[in-house]
């Protein structure tokens, strides 16, 4: 479905994507990376908005640059807003379908169906300027799927959606994958991608760091130091107890936050509630480094450089 061979994209002296080689078959993939990692550059290359400085890009067997045949089979939902605020969601989606060469009638049907699919039927005649962020996000997705593409590319599609909207979109995308269509889905949040697909591409610093399933990624992280930040009522007492239980390799305290480094985070997660109850301590906030994508990528980058 997508083939990139030694693709490098330079913006002057800045590297957007660095020696990227990748082959993806039909299916659903999550493109995971922190902000500024090169996700959007990669999507721009795949959608033909950019020409690689080095290497070749093929999508559905074709070069994506100015390729009308490919664009008929591809739907793209960009990360930014960028819709015409003064027109209605229906007019906007309908107009974009007309650019696919559809007749007025076909464009009307396609737009109405897609907007219905994303739950926008009741608001589709209102100007986009009056939409909430979530409604604009739904409209963006509708324009990407209305012409029934084979490959759907979404850049941060959950941005601005409320929990119900997220759930509904998740269902839409799962159905999409279920009927055998392909999906590339960029996000900087691991759980968003995990809710849709188990196939990941991890990108950071313009490089492909790892690819595979969630289990593959977690397996790579086994044995790596994992930091957990705990905001609690008595961080000194908690630090002492955790060290006493040998649940932490090191601890540090800043204000009411205790940061624990451990090589066995799952054990700590399992035992911590019981310990807190036993010791009479209260934790009001817990952030795991495993959920912090930047930390995960930092570790992977260190592995990549041979530092771990």
């Amino acid at each position: 479905m997508i083939e990139l061979k030694n693709v490098t994209k330079l913006y002057g002296k800045v590297i957007g994507v660095n020696d990227f080689t990748l082959t993806l078959g039909t299916g659903a993939y999550g493109l995971l990376g922190p902000n500024g990692s090169g996700k959007s550059t990669l999507l721009n290359l795949i959608t033909g908005q950019l020409r690689p400085t080095l290497g070749t890009v093929k999508v559905l067997g074709m070069s994506p640059r100015n390729n009308a045949s490919l664009f008929r089979r591809m739907g793209y939902c960009p990360g930014g807003e960028g819709m015409y605020s003064e027109v209605s969601g229906y007019d906007w989606v309908c107009f974009l379908q007309r650019l696919h060469g559809m007749s007025v009638r076909d464009a009307d049907l396609a737009a109405s169906k897609a907007l219905e699919l994303v739950g926008m039927t009741s608001s589709m005649r209102r100007p986009i300027a009056s939409y909430s962020r979530g409604m604009r996000q739904r409209t963006k997705i509708a324009q990407a799927i209305a012409h029934n593409p084979d490959l759907l590319i979404l850049d941060e599609p959950f941005n601005g959606l409320d929990p119900i909207g997220r759930h509904e979109l998740t269902e839409v995308l799962r159905d999409w994958i279920g009927i055998g269509k392909s999906l590339i889905f960029a996000s900087h949040l691991l759980h968003e991608i995990e809710s849709i697909t188990q196939s990941f591409l991890l990108i950071c610093g313009g490089r492909l760091l790892a690819s595979g399933t969630a289990e593959d990624v977690h397996a790579m992280m086994v044995g790596l130091p994992n930091e957990i930040a705990l905001r609690c009522s008595d961080p000194h007492a908690l630090a002492m107890r955790l060290m006493g239980e040998r649940a932490a390799e090191s601890v540090s305290i800043a204000g009411d936050t205790l940061t624990v480094a451990t090589q066995h985070p799952l054990t700590l997660y399992e035992k911590l509630p019981g310990w807190l109850s036993l010791w009479g301590l209260r934790v009001v906030e817990m952030r795991s480094a495993d959920e912090s994508l930047q930390a995960l990528f930092n570790s992977l980058m260190k592995m990549h450089r041979g530092e771990l």
Binding site: Q49, F71, R72, G80, G82, L99, Q143
Partner: peptide, 17 residues
Amino acid sequence: ERRSWVYLAVRPNGGTA
């Protein structure tokens, strides 16, 4: 400027149209 170009450019001959 309004960042709508990308929506148009990924249509068949969208930019030219």
